[in-house]
Design a protein around this nucleic acid. Structure first.
Lengths: 239, 239
DNA sequence: GGGGAGAGATGCCGC
DNA sequence: GCGGCATTTCTCCCC
């Protein structure tokens, strides 16, 4: 039928259309009764089981799993094991509609624009987006003061912590901002530190909590433009 | 080559091995330079682009997208649009290695054991897992007081809020517990409400925060056994 | 490896 | 639709 081990050894990706049931045991336990599915096995050990609808795989094994394909009484079985994670998954196939395998050569990595990091970069470069006179001091300071997106001071010299959210700020964002403000107060030994959430939207609850804690909200849209020179560079590489 | 629209109209799932580049615009913007990938299109409009490694699709469109497949100068293009979500994704294919399509009939739905819900069920049935004399009053109270996993009172009659975590409780779990305890205090007009986190593990930070707030931790493992009768029932259905 | 946080998070449920 | 929350979340980064 197909030598899965040999195919994976060659670094191929395998796609199987089949009727199967799936059992999983590891972080949880699951059983999927028989039905038609799409099974994908990648060279790195990744295994995905997709039903005919929906975004997410119904079952999966992460990178590092080892697989064994064998014939059984009523059909075939694909056993996947990840010893390190103490996980195993069995696929019992009663019908195999098709098997396709292909060596995939892919050195490309995705470029993404419109992330929280892009927002903090933009605010660092255009501080007026927060308010006139805002002067950023540091950005994405992981080690010194935490994970603060943008840190600076305002026209009056007060310290300001800005927390960016790429879509909607919720009450978690307010708690996050509060933790950073408290940390700065302690580290700098100052009494008053301003907190600002920069996001395109904010939930009503978050807005109320924000004002209750004396912080404020500034509507800022994340930059969604891929840097054109990068894009052009990549595209030139196509030819 | 392939009539994607017709295949999708028939409710088929399509798998394409190809060399392609991918552009996405919607909640963010992305560009993936050329490389060999696996493209999956489902009947519900779901589209997945997988690189030869890793668990997650590098690009995707969720259920509800519409697709158009066309020939271009240098190859083929698959355009996907989701008007409602203002998203679109273009796949430019220079080489198509293979196309496979299959009608998938699948009425099965997965059974999962070992979730947080399973933990709260277990604690409701075996309250001694929390402590001798613990008496649960309600479970999974969504509407009245939030999303409290288990709510009850102890041997002394004090109200107790239990928050379950299926793996490791972190400081978010402590904040969550605190919100519920405060809510109960307000609703019931009582001064003292106990808070307990039930989980197999807890982080050091969470432990410290928990004790600082006067709450406690109880080690509880989530039940990972699928109910045998259910499993048997399903398996009988196979024949 | 643990901990904290983002993600085009996704998916579910309740209002 | 929004909001809160679990997820076999996954992924990245730093300590």
């Amino acid at each position: 039928m197909i030598d899965v081990q040999e195919s994976l050894r060659k670094g191929e990706t395998i796609v199987i259309f089949c009727n199967c049931s799936v059992s999983y045991s590891g972080r949880a336990e699951s059983y999927l009764p028989p039905g038609d599915r799409l099974v994908i096995v990648k060279a790195d050990g990744t295994l995905l089981v997709h039903q005919p609808k929906g975004n997410m795989p119904v079952n999966y094994m992460k990178e590092g799993a080892t697989h064994h394909f064998m014939q059984t009484d009523g059909g075939w079985r694909l056993e996947s094991i990840n010893i390190a994670h103490k996980e195993h998954l069995d696929i019992d196939m009663s019908i195999i509609y098709s098997v396709t395998n292909q060596l995939l050569a892919d050195a490309g990595s995705i470029e993404l624009a419109g992330t929280e990091r892009d927002m903090s970069d933009m605010i660092f470069d255009q501080p007026d987006l927060i308010e006139p006179g805002f002067a950023p001091l540091s950005r994405e300071e992981h080690t010194k003061v935490g994970f603060i997106d943008v840190f600076g001071h305002d026209r009056q010299g007060s310290l300001v912590v800005v927390e960016c959210k790429r879509y909607q700020a919720d009450f978690h964002a307010v708690h996050q901002l509060e933790r950073y403000v408290e940390k700065i107060k302690k580290l700098r030994g100052v009494d008053k530190v301003r907190g600002i959430i920069a996001a395109p939207h904010i939930t009503d609850n978050a807005k109320a909590l924000l004002e209750q804690k004396g912080f404020s909200f500034k509507m800022v849209e994340p930059p969604k433009r891929l840097e054109r020179h990068k894009k052009q560079q990549k595209r030139l590489g196509e030819f």
